[in-house]
Design a protein around this nucleic acid. Sequence first.
DNA 1: ATGAAAGCGCTAACAA
DNA 2: TTGTTAGCGCTTTCAT
Lengths: 326, 326
Amino acid sequence: MIRMKDIAAKLELSQTTVSHVLTGKHAHYRISPATVARVRTMADKLGYRSSALARAFRDRKSYSMALAVEDLTNPFWTGVAIGAEREAEKEGYTLVVANTSGNAERERRTVQLLQERRVDGLIVSPVTVADQALVDLRRDGLPFVQIDRSIKGEDIPCVRTDHVTGSALAVDHLLRRGRREIAFVGGPVEIQTFQLRLAGFRKAMARHGLKPAAVELIEPTSKAAQEAVRGILSRKPRPTAIYTANIWITLGALRAVRDARLSIPGHLEVVGFDDIAEADLLAYPLTTVAQDVEAIGRESFRLLLRVMRGQKVPREVLLPPRLVVR
Amino acid sequence: MIRMKDIAAKLELSQTTVSHVLTGKHAHYRISPATVARVRTMADKLGYRSSALARAFRDRKSYSMALAVEDLTNPFWTGVAIGAEREAEKEGYTLVVANTSGNAERERRTVQLLQERRVDGLIVSPVTVADQALVDLRRDGLPFVQIDRSIKGEDIPCVRTDHVTGSALAVDHLLRRGRREIAFVGGPVEIQTFQLRLAGFRKAMARHGLKPAAVELIEPTSKAAQEAVRGILSRKPRPTAIYTANIWITLGALRAVRDARLSIPGHLEVVGFDDIAEADLLAYPLTTVAQDVEAIGRESFRLLLRVMRGQKVPREVLLPPRLVVR
DNA sequence: ATGAAAGCGCTAACAA
DNA sequence: TTGTTAGCGCTTTCAT
């Protein structure tokens, strides 16, 4: 790898002068145009690539941020990553995407690794509400913001969709369609996302004087949902609607409906949180509560920058969900 | 940020001794157990996090690799990223995922950035077969391997699904189902992926003495495919099958079939390259040529390691596709 | 208009 | 068993 020193040697200049030119500060240092040209030409000819590593080391600033998420298989997280990455690029930062697999121990290791890599800031989706790794991060003074979920008892900003309102959109839609016996299938309430979506569901139902037809909290996988919904569908009386709190649960529910040979919307309706890009091609009409995933990524990056600059930040940024009726 | 120096000062030891302990080399240097314990305790107490940045700088090795892909919205690329990331972690590397948006200029910038970050190696999917940025990379001596596509004229290893065989699987399947008037809808042949899939299609057809019912090369988006397939469906006679060479094209084709109110498999059949996770829930039975996406990521990482170690590597690693009949 | 020197945090060669 | 020193590539301060 070519270094400034090599260019300097070839040109019989000092490394300092080369640096002045290559960092674009030649005007300030009043380097002669001839020298500027010579340096640039030589750099080009030798294929010089400045070492961001050396600069980061010297500056004690890596110009990189990390995004630690749960599952890059989920379009929600890829969307977030794309949004954050775009914003990062615009601001001259590199975004490192790491995944925690929704596992506390792995999250701890990931965060530690990123800290050692000296990322300048971190966007993270806490695995649990009592996340020691993040409390420690706080102590270490690494700037970070939370995404989608937040830990208890610490005043750390969080960007997320307004899950409570999202659930209200779902419930109100179903009621408008005349469905009053609504079952909820969600993930464990240890994951704040599901807790909020469930709370929103209960609240919306209560507002209309209704009780949930069922509340099932399961692993947020298609398989578990398929099983759970199979149970729900065999109840008498059968609920006339199911509100599924996550994309995998939605898919599992649809599979259960198919297995039971029931029809949508004839026998029941399904509304799911998270939009599905191919929803218009599904065998069943599916209404969804869609999140602006890229905005979540973008806003959390912006928020992180503000935190790093010591600017005032809101404790919570809530993005509005949108109902996609099908 | 706490440094070794700080620990040394507190303990009235030399920084070197602290380093010996913290890097686990105390046995070799015969550091006393008492000292070892003291150092470890103090490191813990102060919340020491070693600087991977400083180490990378010193070692001129960042222990990071990059994966530069086109579009993280496409499950193909996320799958590849997940596979590569898993392997990277196993080998003690951090994987940086960057995206090129399938754009030559952006790819050039991305590659340059990664080079400046001093990644130890690169896995990249060339935007075109004549990719100057990659030829230059070669000259710079940065180890890299290609994924899914390869540039012309340079002997750089490439990992990909056997697209030609994949197309044969699709054609043979359609013929088994009695469809002989098969149209091909693919992306531009400047993208090698499509070139190979098309070549495989033509070859398989020729083997059976058949001519393509149509060959449409379009932008690989759902929208463009929907438009193109609309045209194909209005031809007389109408093809009895369509082979779509990419996930977005497949989705667009299905939308066109829906718009034309045709039925599958009644009026025609569709086989698509790339599997779709929710295919079983679609309104149309869809057979696909599935790729082992994680294997592609995993194998390219392994191959990259071999390149870096100067071991002998195959010029091409072809992974078998798999037909998923529905 | 150009250059010398110091220092960022770490490790390794070498000393003691 | 522990310590001294040098150096990785870069930027900046302070000369000249």
